[in-house]
Design a protein around this nucleic acid. Structure first.
Ligand SMILES: [Zn+2]
Ligand SMILES: [Zn+2]
Ligand SMILES: [Zn+2]
Ligand SMILES: [Zn+2]
Lengths: 167, 167
DNA sequence: CGTAATATTGCAACATTATAACCTAAGGTT
DNA sequence: AACCTTAGGTTATAATGTTGCAATATTACG
């Protein structure tokens, strides 16, 4: 469940799993996973690198869909509402959620070299939120945590091997 | 030191303190706090509500400065580099830092009703970062944490008094 | 089925936020 | 003064996101 996108893995499983979860979630909530919406979700899941809204337009046009900004933004809003994707504010980009359904607090790590983003369930995050609520006497409704740095594969290696060569 | 912007306070102290710290910091680093830069800093510190770059332009024009986007963005870049202001990504807006100088990790709480933002030193934040580094084997270089919700004054009151009436 | 209500999409224009490029002005150094 | 470096003025443009309305598809209901 707690996968690590920086390690070699069968990414087609990620995609298949995401689509499957999206379909059942939409069915449960009576939401319609239309062709445009499903295609946008697929495009976002092509990698773990967050993708900008305008990057999706050419691909949609190529698939015969309309390719004006509102098309993709509406699809993104739909997917965001259902928690199927997240928006990374530090990048203005969108990435698939690997455990959709819950309106869960989100913590992302983003590699500043390869660009891949990993979502983490993090118990420290809830501790942080509770602390802020206590110290300030506030009610926290939403939260946004994005950490940036170098993933294992992109750190200057102690040895000389390139970490992904044998993948 | 650990002030709370949601409580009544003498805000002119905030402004005076910010300007004083900015001047000494610039002196120490050999940076020039020019008139435009200082004015932008003052404008940002007019309240604890983060301000958008384009909101600053009319005020600058009113003061006889040039008021084209590059002017304000250059000033903001300068202030950001020195750590005198922070950028809130969830708002695309800028707010003064109450303890500039260090390249410190930042945690903000933003009231979604009154818009005021409070910067918090938070020990849980470092714990979170260390945990992420350990779990993923990554190196964290930057971090971004923004919590949104209701501040004490903006929460639906149990009583009926408006919290700021007597301020 | 036929029709009305609702949800989705196509389309055009526009709004907001940020940057690039190029030149001039100001401040510091010798 | 001559020179160099930094800062600011100006114009244009890029990148990201929204609004409004008409057209179409889907669902709900008699
Ligand atoms: Zn994958
Ligand atoms: Zn990487
Ligand atoms: Zn204040
Ligand atoms: Zn408030």
């Amino acid at each position: 469940m707690s996968q690590n996108v920086y390690q070699p893995h069968n990414h087609s499983h990620c995609v298949a799993n995401a689509l499957s979860q999206a379909q059942s979630l939409c069915h449960d909530k009576g939401a319609r996973l239309t062709k445009v919406r499903q295609r946008v979700l697929e495009l976002i899941w092509q990698s773990h690198k967050p993708v900008g809204a305008y990057e999706l337009l050419p691909a949609l046009a190529n698939d015969g869909f309309n390719s004006a900004p509102p098309t993709v933004y509406r699809a993104l809003d739909f997917l965001l509402d259902l928690g199927l994707v997240h928006r990374l504010h530090s990048l203005n980009a969108y990435v698939g959620c690997n455990h959709p359904g819950a309106n869960h607090p989100v913590c992302f790590f983003i590699c500043e070299h390869c660009g891949q983003a990993q979502e983490l369930p993090n118990d420290k995050l809830n501790a942080l939120t509770r602390q802020v609520e206590q110290v300030l006497g506030v009610q926290v409704h939403h939260q946004l945590t994005e950490l940036t740095g170098l993933c294992p594969s992109c750190q200057p290696a102690s040895g000389e091997t390139t970490a992904n060569d044998h993948a």
